[in-house]
Simulated scan of single mutants.
Amino acid sequence: MSDSNRTDFTNPSTFILLGIPGLEAAHIWISIPFCVMYTIAVLGNFTILFIVKRESSLHGPMFYFLCMLAITDLVISTSTLPKMLSIFWFNSREISFSACLTQMYFIHCFSTMESGILVALAFDRYVAICNPLRYSTTLTNSVVFKIGLAVVLRSGIITLPYPLLARQWPYCRTNIISHSYCGHIAVVKLACADIRISSYYGLFDLFSVIGMDVFFIAISYIQILRAIFRLPTKDARLKTFGTCISHLCAISALYIPDLVSSLMLRFGHNLPLHFLVLISSVYLLVPPVLHPISYGVRTKQIRDRLLRLFTHKEI
């Protein structure tokens, strides 16, 4: 902590994370819902992975994509929440420069990966509803693997400039990060240099990647809705559309908080700092918590296998 007040250093070996600035006295209370949400996220996503692995009947394209989604949720939450809780519980605020950049990379890489997986799930729903007879021949294991590989490579390459740019800036003002984790903007704002290239790249990433993904998802759902409205009965339309509800919930859980959080951090200068930090911290936990709940409740195959698992244990 002795370095935290100095202004004559360059590229400090450690950063100091403040947690939720202005709410330090309430850190213990704030940690309770965060801990509960993290527990739900871990248990929920591991449950999906366990059920899909256990049940051979679920070894299909949609469930493979769900497993990818569960893994990304686990990585995002685990790369941030343990450090947050150590700040809240033990006042362990220090994080090394390298660990900070690594955390930054994991957060942005797997968030981008999550967006790509939602596009893959939209494509899965499109083929299942619009071309059901060609589903098994279109989404083969080879195709699913190639889609997954493309999502991983895109995320890894697009996110790489974040830590590379952040590493090259000189940090000679302070090493105190007024945040609970090493987000891109929160870190580069500490640099004593013109960081417009980092800020512009972040906005480019936000609007180009998410914009492109939302575009493809929208095209898929336009075709899906056209196919649904051509069904002969209202019950058939509702039943078919019901298979998309979980995916729509996952889309809302990711894109809405992500967009709101990113824009508030850049342009919400008049908002209280503790509010901005709290919202951006909660945003990281919303998708990992809601995804297993929405898919576990709304997807009949997973719900039935889960009930059967508990029923057998009781017997």
Rank of each mutant, 00 (worst) to 15 (best):
V260F: 03
S252A: 15
K239N: 13
D258I: 05
D258W: 02
N270C: 04
T243C: 12
H247L: 15
C249W: 13
S261V: 09
H247T: 01
N270K: 13
L271Y: 06
S246H: 07
S261W: 05
C244I: 10
M264T: 14
L271W: 07
K239V: 13
N270Q: 15
K239H: 14
I245S: 07
L265P: 01
R266C: 02
T243Q: 15
S261N: 04
I251W: 10
M264I: 01
L271G: 01
L271C: 09
L263T: 01
L265W: 08
S246Y: 11
T240S: 15
C244H: 08
I251R: 12
S252M: 11
H269V: 13
S262V: 02
F241E: 10
R266D: 05
S262F: 01
L248K: 00
P257A: 06
C244G: 10
N270Y: 13
C249M: 07
L254I: 05
S246W: 06
F267M: 03
G242R: 13
T243D: 09
L254Q: 07
T240H: 13
D258E: 05
G268V: 00
D258Y: 08
A250M: 12
F241C: 03
A253L: 09
I256F: 08
I245F: 12
L254K: 00
Y255K: 02
L254P: 01
H269C: 04
N270D: 08
M264G: 00
M264H: 13
I251D: 12
L265H: 06
T243G: 04
M264Q: 06
R266S: 14
I251N: 12
G242C: 03
M264A: 11
F241T: 05
D258T: 05
L248S: 01
M264L: 08
F267W: 06
L263V: 06
L265A: 08
I256H: 00
N270E: 05
